[in-house]
Amino acid sequence: MTGTHPTWRVPAASAGAVACAAILAGLAGADRPRDPGTTVTIYAASSLQGVAEELAEEFESSHDDVTVVMSYGGSSTLAAQIIEGAPANLFLSADDVQAERVADQLGGTTSTPFASNSLTIAVPIGNPAGVRKLADLTDDALVVALCSPDVPCGRLSDQLASTAGLRLAPDTEELSVADVLAKVSSGQADAGLVYLTDIARTPGVEQVVVEGTEAVATSYVAVELRPGDGTANAFVDLLASPVGRQVLGDAGFSPP
């Protein structure tokens, strides 16, 4: 900050302008949309990642001209994006509330429940705090991570606790189940409530098996977003087919 004034020369400035234009042109080219007739865009809850990838491959191999494009995120985030006009054909929600929200806002959609999932206790490998049962999560001496009641996994945690007549004592109420898993796998938290299907796909955590948690379940719903969309409808059929059930079951999901 010496206060000297920059002296710019025209050639340098125009070279800069040319470079900027070239960069912008490159960016624009990268974003050219694909042929819309052969692409089905699926917005899927993060917990479906492995399953959805397997099913997308299966779907592409039986539908030669179709490309499946997947986008993953928290169900409420995806719902908000779809309501704002994101170009999705199918929404696979981990939560019926978010599925209903999208159906109400858009109209003309078709909703089909295709799986269910329940919660379980995740602990760091080796269970250093010796968690044995759900009631241990009421212990103030334990560092407990839960989802915030504002997001689907948190609502389910609340239901589970009240069904068991417990008042859980969280040290943090995370914004997504992925954040809970990160806190547990890093050892920051001694225990957390996560989806049953998260245990196998997350390194660094193990499950404490507790009875009765499957009674409180969340329903996974497929929402076909555009009326008369045969390709999206065919994908929903795949979810309900024996092959689809097998893939979902292997990942730990229960039937709807």
């Binding site: 991570a145 915030s148 969280p170 040290d171 943090t172 109420e173 995370e174 914004l175 954040d179 990160a182 806190k183 920051q188």
Partner: peptide
């Protein structure tokens, strides 16, 4: 979010 968590 990564380090401190989120509790009201």
């Amino acid at each position: 979010l990564t380090f401190a968590g989120s509790l009201e």
